[in-house]
């Protein structure tokens, strides 16, 4: 399952981040394999999305969330 498909109320664990440029930036921001994620908000125009990663909240675009593989808890 992809992060972009996560629904409100679900939690999941990141299993893989695809895309080289993207993964580095995401790792630096603490979004790495093994971290728990949950969907928090969707922007008014449907994109980007805000997710809880570990202990904080960050936002990213759906096109980037598509490159993040997750496993539902």
């Amino acid at each position: 399952m992809k992060l972009s498909e996560l629904q409100f109320g679900q939690t999941a664990v990141v299993s893989e981040v695809l895309g080289e440029d993207l993964s580095l930036k995401l790792f630096e921001m603490g979004l790495l394999p093994g971290e728990e994620v949950a969907l928090e908000n969707i922007a008014p125009f449907g994109d980007p999305i805000a997710i809880r990663v570990g202990e904080y909240k960050m936002c990213l675009r759906l096109q980037d969330a598509e490159n993040i593989e997750i496993k539902l808890n």
Binding site: D21, M29, A50, K57, M58, C59, R61
Partner: peptide, 12 residues
């Protein structure tokens, strides 16, 4: 030259 992304912390 680089891919554009939009990633940002939403602080409390």
């Amino acid at each position: 030259e680089t891919k554009n992304y939009f990633m940002m912390e939403l602080p409390g």
